Computed example of a mutant assay.
Amino acid sequence: MKTHLDPAWPIAFRSLFVRVVIYTLLIGLIAQGAYWEAQYLPSVRFSELGFTEFTQTLVLFTACLLLIYVRHVLHVWPNVTLLLLAFLAASLVREQDHFLDTYVAENTWKVLVALIVIPSITWVVIQRRYFLTEFTHYSNTVSLGLFTAGFLTTYIFSRLYGRQAFWRTVMQENYVSNVKSMAEEVTELLGYSIILFAMVELVLLARRIYQARQIPA
């Protein structure tokens, strides 16, 4: 028998349609933003100060806030959300490596990432029985599917697609480093955006679980 903790409830077609429309519009805005960056911000295009890098930071920061909301306000799947939060917070710090290395100290970002990841993984290992129970619920959700797609896009495909050797082969004597940077950074932003959509889906599901918990048995 299904319980109120079972996330395998169907999503209404209208709700799914609205979400797809919104996500599509956001992806379109990202693509348009990259175009505007290339056209109107030639001095900082696809650099640490450009639209794409700034949006990556904003997307990751927003995703972290959503996870904090799920974990500390809705109190849904605390171990799963802790691991996701550690991963995204580490990614957020990694995106600031240029500023941290320049204005704080060399390799500062590595220290901060270690301070985030090591305690979080340690706690999840200690709580592994609870984590595995929570994950059995999370594993059947739209959120995990989107998160996996975003992860593969950002951390696998964008790295391979953005290889200098690849773009030198494609462009040969016309190779321009900005083109290579554009391809990698925009693809990376797409992956981060899909991860953000995954966190939105997690919030929507967590709210349903939270509301169900308020109903007396």
Results as ranks from 00 to 15, higher is better:
residue 43 S to L: 13
residue 48 E to M: 00
residue 50 G to Y: 00
residue 56 Q to G: 15
residue 58 L to T: 08
residue 59 V to Q: 07
residue 60 L to K: 14
residue 60 L to N: 10
residue 64 C to S: 15
residue 65 L to N: 09
residue 67 L to M: 08
residue 69 Y to M: 05
residue 70 V to E: 09
residue 73 V to I: 14
residue 74 L to M: 02
residue 76 V to Y: 01
residue 76 V to I: 09
residue 78 P to S: 08
residue 78 P to Q: 03
residue 78 P to A: 08
residue 79 N to T: 10
residue 79 N to R: 12
residue 79 N to A: 10
residue 82 L to M: 14
residue 84 L to V: 06
residue 84 L to G: 11
residue 85 L to G: 15
residue 87 F to C: 06
residue 90 A to V: 07
residue 91 S to Q: 15
residue 91 S to R: 13
residue 92 L to M: 07
residue 92 L to I: 01
residue 92 L to R: 00
residue 96 Q to Y: 11
residue 96 Q to V: 02
residue 96 Q to F: 15
residue 96 Q to A: 06
residue 97 D to M: 11
residue 98 H to S: 08
residue 98 H to Y: 15
residue 99 F to I: 03
residue 100 L to P: 03
residue 105 A to C: 01
residue 105 A to T: 06
residue 108 T to Q: 10
residue 109 W to V: 05
residue 110 K to E: 07
residue 110 K to A: 12
residue 110 K to V: 07
residue 110 K to Q: 15
residue 111 V to I: 11
residue 113 V to I: 08
residue 113 V to C: 11
residue 115 L to A: 12
residue 119 P to N: 02
residue 120 S to W: 09
residue 121 I to G: 04
residue 121 I to L: 15
residue 125 V to C: 14
residue 126 I to F: 13
residue 127 Q to W: 03
residue 128 R to C: 04
residue 128 R to T: 04
residue 128 R to M: 04
residue 129 R to I: 07
residue 132 L to D: 04
residue 132 L to M: 14
residue 133 T to P: 04
residue 135 F to P: 01
residue 135 F to W: 13
residue 136 T to W: 00
residue 136 T to Q: 15
residue 137 H to I: 00
residue 137 H to A: 14
residue 138 Y to T: 00
residue 139 S to T: 00
residue 139 S to Y: 09
residue 144 L to P: 09
residue 144 L to M: 11
residue 145 G to S: 13
residue 145 G to C: 10
residue 148 T to K: 11
residue 150 G to Q: 07
residue 150 G to R: 05
residue 150 G to W: 01
residue 155 Y to R: 07
residue 157 F to V: 12
residue 158 S to D: 06
residue 159 R to G: 04
